[in-house]
Computed example of a mutant assay.
Amino acid sequence: MDSENDGLLPDNPYIVLSVERYECHHGPDRNKAKKNKPEAVPDHVYGKKRFLIQPTKKMDCPATIIAKEVIFFTDYKTSVSKWQREKISKDIKTGMMDDKKLNLKMDKRLVIKLPKKEEHKFHLQGEIEEISMPVDKRIVAKVEDYVTEGFISASCIRMLLDTFVRKELFAGQRSPSWTNRRFFPSQKDVSNLIYSTRLRAVKSKFDQENLVGCVEEWRRENPDDLIDFSPSDDTSRLLFIYQSRQQRRLLQRYGNEICFLDATYRTTKYSVPLFFLCVKTNMDYAVVAVFASQFEDTKTIAAALGKIKEWNSEWNPQFFMVDYCEAEINGIGTCFKGI
């Protein structure tokens, strides 16, 4: 709590319970050091990145909103002598030690300090700043709803958004200016939102169709390799399992004592969990089966291991080493009784 409160706060002793600071969205870049780190080598080769004239909106603006949760003790005043303030402090501490706190009258408030207009620096202000504002999340969600319903014209969706903003978001209130990009996105903004929404809707389907084609080609080229693929739809989950002839031979030879199940976490460009089944050979550790699933749960892991066990009828490991993951542990316990 600031000592100078301009007479706006009560003349009572207080305790600050919590403090939250909210910086201007043009404030300091808190991730600058992380952004300057060299990028990791990508999994795939991509085209040239586009050039950004202004790569960040951070302008080191010092404006900050400070919100404090404060308890005021209304039985006491602070406009007294130093000796009296020390006695009041002692009485409050003694009263706070009492579990019931029956002798203290307290008033909890949320005190918010807003920055002055002059504190905003190094960026545009006023009506002209509205042009550079990001699109509101509610507007983005509404565009996605319109696209889902079948609207794909940017002009048509902009008219619908205008009605949505004026009649729903700001019903009975003064609506923002039409130059405010947050609530009235440009034609290009709406077109980009339509494109991204439609791309998300079809990307998963296209990827699965491509994978079906790849699976058929792999089976023709390597008939001895075992592949099981279940695409994701309304009734089933995505599950891809692969084991080559060489991997099957290694599992049968080295997999009856101890096996390792290793899952990747945020190490690929895709959101599906990727699992490696490994064994220790006489030379090194080797991957003897691979499966990728839509979900990382007990049912999916048990189904994948069950299929691998079906391919290798004599495979019966005594031990399994996994990460501390309940889904993996329970999946192994479901497929292999007694482990």
Results as ranks from 00 to 15, higher is better:
185 P>W: 01
170 F>I: 10
217 E>I: 12
161 L>V: 05
177 S>W: 01
159 M>I: 01
199 L>N: 10
147 V>R: 02
143 V>H: 00
194 I>N: 13
203 K>Q: 09
205 K>P: 00
180 N>I: 04
210 N>V: 08
217 E>S: 15
152 I>S: 10
199 L>G: 00
180 N>M: 05
167 K>H: 02
156 C>S: 11
146 Y>M: 14
174 R>D: 09
163 T>R: 09
216 E>A: 15
217 E>A: 15
185 P>F: 04
157 I>P: 01
182 R>M: 13
179 T>N: 15
194 I>P: 13
221 E>D: 13
198 R>E: 12
225 D>C: 06
142 K>M: 11
145 D>F: 02
140 V>I: 11
177 S>Y: 02
202 V>F: 13
152 I>Q: 06
146 Y>G: 00
152 I>G: 03
207 D>Y: 03
201 A>T: 04
207 D>T: 05
148 T>D: 06
162 D>I: 03
221 E>I: 11
164 F>N: 02
176 P>C: 05
219 R>S: 13
141 A>Q: 08
155 S>C: 08
207 D>F: 05
162 D>M: 04
225 D>L: 04
213 G>C: 06
201 A>L: 08
193 L>D: 01
181 R>W: 01
143 V>P: 00
161 L>S: 00
190 V>F: 05
208 Q>H: 04
159 M>K: 14
185 P>S: 02
217 E>W: 14
155 S>R: 14
173 Q>V: 05
211 L>T: 03
157 I>M: 03
225 D>T: 09
158 R>C: 08
210 N>P: 00
182 R>T: 03
220 R>F: 06
159 M>W: 03
210 N>W: 05
218 W>Q: 15
199 L>T: 07
167 K>S: 09
141 A>T: 13
200 R>A: 15
145 D>Q: 12
196 S>V: 15
199 L>Y: 08
190 V>E: 05
224 D>V: 09
162 D>A: 07
146 Y>L: 15
184 F>V: 04
208 Q>A: 10
148 T>R: 09
160 L>K: 12
141 A>H: 01
222 N>A: 11
198 R>F: 01
192 N>A: 09
213 G>Q: 10
163 T>S: 11
143 V>Y: 00
187 Q>N: 02
182 R>F: 01
155 S>N: 14
207 D>R: 08
